[in-house]
Amino acid sequence: MTHGPRIVDARLHLLSRQVLDVDGEPVSTVDDLELRGPDGSEARAGQEAHVAAILVGPALVTRLFGGRAPTSRMPRIAWDDVGHLGTAVELAVSSDGLDADWVEHWVRERLVERIPGGRHDPEGDR
């Protein structure tokens, strides 16, 4: 087992990685990371700063096309919910409780579940 901190580069090891929930269900990709100072204050140059949250969805749009969106309103996953870092970022919580996954839930409930067989388990009929 590894001891001491693991040194990583954000772009190389975190950004654009797949985020999985505690059951291994895909949730999103890491579209951006929010930095904060001690006690959740605004991060400042040269002052102690840490990763506070994984930003998803709209953060991808601003990274693709530039421009700025108010970070506070972006769908986010708190960094405290992260459990493991491997070839994916693995959360310690279930995706069902995450607001960041609302589009998937919307498409599921409004469209796919309403088509007959939408809840059928393809592996079940053997």
């Binding site: 895909p26 999103s28 393809p122």
Partner: peptide, 18 residues
């Protein structure tokens, strides 16, 4: 896979809605 959605035929369609 690009957007990190849930995917795969092994899942129920509702669990890989998008």
């Amino acid at each position: 896979q690009y957007l990190g959605w849930s995917w795969g035929k092994f899942r129920r369609p509702a669990r890989a809605a998008r």
